[in-house]
Design a protein around this nucleic acid. Sequence first.
RNA 1: CGGGGAGUAGCUCAGUCUGGUAGAGUGUCUGCUUUGGGAGCAGAAAGUCGCAGGUUCGAAUCCUGUCUCCCCGACCA
Length: 565
Amino acid sequence: MKASQFYLSTLKEAPQDAELKSHQLMIRAGFIKRLSSGLYSWMPLGLRVLKKVENIIREEMNKAGGIELLMPAIQPSELWNETQRWDLFGPQMLKIKDRHDNDFCFGPTHEEVITDIVRKEIKSYKQLPVNFYQIQTKFRDEIRPRFGVMRAREFLMKDSYSFHANDESLQETYKAMFEAYNRIFTQIGLNYRSVAADSGAIGGDSSHEFHVLADSGEDLIAFSDQSEYAANIEKATTQIQVNPEQKSLPTAKIHTPSISTINNLVRHFQCNLDQILKSIAFVADGELVICFLAGNREINLIKLQKTLAVKKLHMAKDADLEKNNLFPGFIGPQGIDHIRQIFDHSVLAMKNMICGANELDYHLKDFNFQQTPSCHDISNVIEGDLSPDGKGQLKFCRGIEVGHIFQLGKKYSEAMGANFLDEQGVSQILTMGCYGIGVSRIVAAAVEQNNDDNGMILPQSIAPFEVIIIPIGMNKSDLVKNECLKIYHSLKENNFDVLLDDRDLRPGIMFAESDLIGIPHRIVVGEKSLNLGEVEYKRRKDQEAYNISLNDVVENLKKVTTKTI
RNA sequence: CGGGGAGUAGCUCAGUCUGGUAGAGUGUCUGCUUUGGGAGCAGAAAGUCGCAGGUUCGAAUCCUGUCUCCCCGACCA
C-alpha cells in the first residue's frame, strides 16, 4: 500500500474526553471516530487492525471445527418471548418497532436465533455435534459506555454456539474451544490469562473467562501464587482459616459515644480491622436483612443476592433501621433474632470480636457466639487469603475481559423445544454451549497493553501494516525514489504487508506518525546510507536503529519477523 | 437513577463573573523557505457560540426550559 493512495489522519492532541491510553491513541492514530456515546466508526487504518484480529479468530475457529454463518442483527420479539428474555433482559436491549408496529430488538446476543435455526435444521443425532459461529455487530445499551471501543454500545463480537447429544460431547467441544481461544490470544500476541469462573446454577466447573492483563482493566482477578487457581473477584472464593487455639474471653459492654465508624472503632479499641464484626443492612425484596462480616472485608453483592435468592437488593436507609429499633453504627448480632441475619464465612475465623450492642453509643468487646452461626460466602476475597484449593495465597491483578466460554446445558433448547432423535429414535433435548470473543475490544486491549510515549507498539499479527518504508527526500532524489520502490515491490512479492510513505512530507512527521500508529518494523531510505549501499532498519519497540545492506532487506525482515511465509 | 463537570472553527481551548462587531494555538488551503523526529515566514478559508424560549436598544455572556457529551457511583449476558 502506498500512503498517497490510502487514508491516514492523525491528531497531535487527544480529545479531552478520552481517558484511557488506548482510547486516546486509537483516536489520535485515526483508528476510530466517535459518532455518539458508545458508537464508533472504524476508520480505514483501524479497520485493517480489526480485520486482522477477525481473521485470526476465523482461522482458529475453522481449525477447531467451527462453521461460520451470519444471522440477522435485528430479531423479532417472538423468539425472545419463548425464553422469557424479552422481559428479563432489561434496558440493555434496544427494542424497536417496524412499520407494522411489531416488536423487534437489535440483537444483544444470539442464543434465541441460533436455537431457532437448529431446532428447524437438526433432526438427528447423526448431525451432532455441531458448532456454528458468526462474527457480527451486537448492540447492548450499556448504562455507561466508556473508554472508546473498550466498552461500546455497538461492538463486533465473535459468538459461537455448539449443540450436542449429551454432556460428554459438550465437554469435548468446550475443551476444543478453550484450546482454540488460547491459540487465538497467543497468536494475537496478548498477555492474557484464562480465568475459571463459577457457573452458578448450571453447575460444574464449566465457565471460563479470558482476560487481557492491564492495570486499567475493569475486572479484578484473584489468582493463587502457587496453583492454577484464578477467578474473577465476582466469583473468587477462599478457605477461611480458623485458629482453634484462641481462648474466648468474657464479653464486656463498653460505652462508645459517637464512635460509629469502623475506623473510629479501630482507633478507640487499638485493634485490627479483622477483630471488628462489621454489620451492613440491606433491604432484600422488601425484607430487612443484616449481614455480618469481618471488618476487613467487603460485601460481594452478586454472592449475597445469590445466597438470599432474591430479585431486588439495595442498601438499607437509616430510616429502615430506626423502624426496627436498630442504631446505625451500633448494630450487632445479639438480641435481634426477630430480624433476618446472614453471616459471612469470615466470621468463622473471629473470636473475641468487637461489635455493636444494639444500644445507642455502646459496643461489645470480646463478643463470642454461643453457637457458631451457619455461614455463607458473601464477601470478596482479599489479597493474602488462602487459595480455595489450599495451595498458595491469593493475589490480585486487573484484566480486560475479551473472551468468555460457557456450558449452557439445556436452558435455551428446552425453552424453545430444540430436540433431536437419538439412536433409539427417542426425542431428546439438545445440550448447548456458547463461546464469545469481543473482537473490537481486543483491538483496544492490545493497544492498552502495548504503547509508549510515542504511540502504539502493535504486535505484528494485528498491526495495520507490518513494515513501513520512510523515504528521506523522495522527490529530490531519484535514487531514493527508485530504491524505495524496489524495496517496496520486493517486500510485497514476499508477502509482507508493507506501507510506503510516498507523501513526501518532512521526515519528522513521517517518523512521528509511523510510531503513533504502531507499525512494528521501519525501514528508512536516505541518500547518505544509500551511497554506502545500506538502509536503516528499526523495530518499533527498540530504541536503536541499525543499518543493513540494501541486498539484505528482505532476508533481514524475514529473520526479524516471526512470520512464517 | 444519584452526584459532579462540559458544550464556542476539524482538534485543544480562551472569552461568560462585569451584555456592546467572534478569539488564540493547532490542523486545512496558497506562496516562499526548509528536509533525519509533528520546523520557519507571509497570506487565506473556516463557527447559527448545542437547541428553544425570555429579558434587553443590543445576548456566546443574564433568566427559564431542553438536548447531548464526559467523569464518579449504583447497575451490568
